[in-house]
Amino acid sequence: MRILALIAVIITGAILIYGTQDMPDWADPQSPASTHVSPRYIEKTLEETATPNAVTSVLADYRGYDTLGETTVIFTAGVCCILILRIRRRHRK
């Protein structure tokens, strides 16, 4: 079992490292991630959302729906814990 797990882990790691070969270099300002979608968030944040902090403007405005999902996840987890751990105390006296 341990051996199997180890083999699975090594294969997964090897595939992941194989994939990094074609990645843009670390901290490259010309990488697609830095040039395709994100520049607008920085350049237009003041104009469109009046917030100097770009992270805040993306979190709460551009991708605000994700944040709604995030709060829902927390709510779900809270109710899940109550559901799992709540015990009826009727029998104890």
Partner: peptide, 9 residues
């Protein structure tokens, strides 16, 4: 800023 936002979520 985008990966930071994604990771906050």
């Amino acid at each position: 800023p985008l990966p930071h936002v994604l990771m906050l979520t």
